[in-house]
Amino acid sequence: MKGQQSFNFQSAIEQLRETFQLDFVGLALVDISKKRHELKWRYVSGNLSTRYRRIVLQSGRGVAGLVFKMGKPIMIENVEAQLDPQDLYNHPIVLFEKLKSFGAMPLFQGDHVQGVLLIGYRKSNKMTEETFEQFKQAIGTQFGPFYLKERMKDDVIEQ
C-alpha cells in the first residue's frame, strides 16, 4: 500500500506503548495479496513470544477479525469476566500475550478497514472507557497512512 513504507509503524507503536504504559501494542494489517481478506499481526511491541506471527485471522474471527468486520472498536475491561474461557481459542492474540484488559480500533484507508490497532494490559480492569478514550484522543485522526473515523461513545462494542 502506498504510504506505508514512509511511516515507521514499529517506532510509532513502541512510542504508544511507552507513553501509555501499555503491556502490549499490536498492529494487524490486511494481506491484500490473498483472495480472501486475511489479517496478520505485522508490528508488535511488548510481546511475550513470536507466536503472533503464525496468527492468520479472517473477517469476523478473533479480536482483529471482529473489529475489521464491524469497523468499530472493541474494548474489554476484564477478559476473565467478559469472555467465555472456552471461546478464548478464537482470540489467539489475547491468549498468547496473556492480555486481561484491552481495546482494539479499526484503521481506515478510503472507506475500508485496512488495519486494526490493539492495545492491552496483562492486568484486569486497566483498560477503562476513559483510558481508551484518552488513547484515541492522543492518536488523533491519523496513524500513518491510515485514519481513525470519528466515533460516538455508543460505537464501542463491549462483550
Rank of each mutant, 00 (worst) to 15 (best):
F7V: 12
N8T: 06
N8A: 14
N8Q: 12
F9W: 04
A12K: 06
A12I: 06
Q15T: 12
L16N: 00
L16G: 00
R17D: 02
Q21L: 15
D23G: 03
D23V: 13
F24G: 02
G26Y: 07
G26T: 07
A28Y: 11
A28R: 01
A28D: 03
L29A: 10
V30A: 14
V30L: 14
I32P: 00
S33D: 13
S33F: 11
K34Y: 10
K34P: 00
K35R: 14
E38K: 10
E38D: 03
E38C: 11
R42W: 06
R42D: 08
G46D: 07
L48F: 04
L48M: 11
Y52P: 09
R53F: 05
I55N: 04
I55E: 05
V56R: 03
L57D: 02
L57T: 06
Q58A: 07
S59A: 13
S59Y: 06
R61A: 05
R61C: 04
R61D: 08
G62D: 04
V63N: 03
V63R: 03
A64T: 08
A64C: 15
G65M: 06
G65H: 03
G65W: 07
L66C: 06
L66D: 07
F68Y: 15
F68Q: 07
M70G: 12
M70I: 05
G71I: 06
P73V: 09
I74T: 09
M75S: 14
I76Y: 11
N78V: 10
L83F: 15
D84C: 01
D84E: 00
P85K: 12
Q86S: 04
N90R: 15
H91D: 01
H91E: 05
H91M: 04
P92G: 07
P92R: 12
P92S: 12
V94I: 15
V94F: 10
V94L: 13
L95W: 04
L95H: 07
K98G: 00
K98V: 02
K98S: 09
L99E: 12
L99I: 00
S101G: 00
S101I: 04
S101K: 03
F102M: 04
G103N: 01
G103V: 14
P106G: 03
P106D: 08
P106F: 08
F108P: 13
F108L: 13
F108E: 09
G110C: 07
D111W: 08
V113H: 12
V113Q: 11
Q114S: 15
G115P: 01
G115S: 09
L118E: 08
I119S: 01
R122Y: 11
K123L: 13
S124R: 13
K126T: 05
T128Y: 11
T131P: 00
F132S: 07
Q134N: 14
F135Y: 12
F135T: 04
K136Y: 02
Q137K: 13
A138R: 04
I139P: 00
I139E: 00
T141F: 04
T141M: 05
Q142R: 15
F143I: 03
G144R: 08
G144S: 06
G144A: 06
P145M: 07
F146D: 05
L148K: 02
K149V: 08
R151E: 14
R151T: 14
K153Q: 10
K153E: 10
D154S: 15
D154H: 08
D155N: 06
D155S: 11
V156S: 03
Q159R: 09
